[in-house]
Design a protein around this nucleic acid. Structure first.
Lengths: 164, 164
DNA sequence: CTGAAACAATACTTTTTTGTACGGATTTTA
DNA sequence: TAAAATCCGTACAAAAAAGTATTGTTTCAG
């Protein structure tokens, strides 16, 4: 389970936009400069973010990129999904299978799937509730927020247990 | 953030061994058969697990593989690390950098790093406390266990907050 | 109106990951 | 002791991901 390059660098570019004053735009060369990345690579990320409608663009000289919504209204999950383009997370492995069999052997009963599902469930919740605005604030405030996400998560799991 | 093929299929093979009666071994062809994977591919995983000393082998005809410890004593983190072979999780991005700069631009102050660190911290804790034994038990018991891991996690975060 | 600077899009190259193939070493069994 | 079945290890091929290059379109400024 690892972070992809697209997620890592694409998120950085998004954070650059999030730290921009309202109404301003930033050009690809500017972002590339600030992040120490190549202009072409930055352009690639920005195109993905634009297609996901997270970013709006201004063309022509003096053009550039800006977030299409407030930083606090854009979850990290949205950003990461836009960059990652729908990967097989968790249960996708059950269908697309590499071996001889048509599908996964454990079709009826499988204890590995719930393991991945629980883990990725937490990741989803965490990234859904963190926003771009959180990543332009000082470090200390992040820890505070994650703590509350985690305790909500526990609450939800308890509820699921009770219902079942 | 996605699960690699090595993690997914390698873990399955490890679980096959975990569900084996004490003292018994399972050959690569057997595992391949049970998982619907190719023998060569299975051999690759088993080699990795052996090198990490999670698995012991018996050579020659009638040979095979067995876990070198009790399933309950082998964490999923150990298995996944063995398969994944030390990837750049989180903070590795700060050093190995793709762009022009020597290292990451945000060297002094960075709020993206703590985000990944907190997330991967949870993943580490989760996978450290789940064991192979957990994955051979029925699904329902997994949920129970994950719930307790999560609430401990919250407790730890609270403590960190208080100390800082 | 023309050139410069920017976004848009696709094609291309390189590197990594995924998965297979094969030859050698080891041990049991007949 | 020889054959068969197994692990061991590397080399190889195919696919995907990571980055780069290039060409086209838009817009501003002079």
């Amino acid at each position: 389970m690892n972070v992809t390059a697209l997620e890592e660098y694409g998120l950085r570019c998004a954070v650059q936009l999030a730290s921009l004053p309202e109404g301003k735009t930033l050009s690809a060369p500017d972002i590339a400069e600030r992040e120490g990345l190549s202009i072409e690579y930055v352009s690639k990320f920005m195109l993905l973010l634009k297609r996901a409608e997270l970013v709006r663009t201004v063309r022509g000289i003096k053009g550039g990129f800006a977030l299409s919504r407030q930083p606090a209204e854009i979850s990290l999950k949205e950003v990461l999904d836009a960059l990652n383009g729908r990967k097989k997370a968790g249960s996708e492995f059950c269908k697309s299978f590499t071996g001889k069999s048509e599908a996964c052997v454990r079709f009826g009963s499988c204890s590995i799937r719930p393991f991945w599902d629980l883990l990725s469930g937490y990741v989803e919740e965490f990234t859904s509730r963190m926003t771009l605005a959180d990543l332009v604030r000082p470090e200390e405030e992040i820890r505070e927020k994650t703590s509350s996400i985690a305790s909500d998560h526990v609450g939800q799991m308890r509820n699921r247990e009770l219902r079942s």
